[in-house]
Amino acid sequence: MVETRIQTPSARSIQLDVPGWPGNIAGQHLDVRLTAEDGYTAVRSYSIASVGDGERIELAVDRLPTGEVSPYLVEELRAGDQLEVRGPLGTYFVWHPTDTAPVQLIAGGSGIVPLMAMIRSHETSGSTVPFHLLYSVRSPRDVFFADELRALAESPHLRVTYVYTRQAPPDWPIAPARITTAAIAADAFSREENPVAFVCGPTGFVETVADIMVGLRIFAPLTIKTERFGGK
């Protein structure tokens, strides 16, 4: 492990140097295996926020208070520590710079991580495919990659919209609330544009959003790709 950066009050990003890392495409994850002194092991999946070649990769982890693995990664891991990882993994929840369909991204909390890789890949590849990101967070402090997203949203090819569930900025026109059909419909492409969608976050969030999206009838069902992170 090389370096960490605070992302939100409960999350940080982690830079890893992985010798022999073959590079990864946007949306892939890896598995982290922790082994205790008594041999007990715990394996958890973490999405890769970085894209492309090179042996330096970035993860971003949110701490679950009662979790086995995430508190260690967020609070205890130090520069120089070794981690056992397996990856890159997955070929389903991925975006390729050669893809041509407009992309609707919807993230809940740490579900931004694989979508951030897609946004970075979109930017660095010079793709002009329209990207919409709808990002549900508890409060403005809970935005991962906030400065970078602000800068990237200057692009004419990326639109970023926030949904605040607990606390909104002072001048925000909408009272804090769970993501609604109206919020999703307002951010959506038209059916004629044949968009595809990537939805990622806690399991309950992903399933709620996916149900709403199917109901909107904008997306052909198989073009809505989901990745459930677990929990409720």
Partner: peptide, 17 residues
């Protein structure tokens, strides 16, 4: 352990074989 995830989470174990 998490209540429910999806098949993306199987990529690691299956990649071993």
């Amino acid at each position: 352990m998490s209540a429910r995830v999806d098949g993306n989470a199987l990529a690691g174990i299956l990649s071993e074989y």
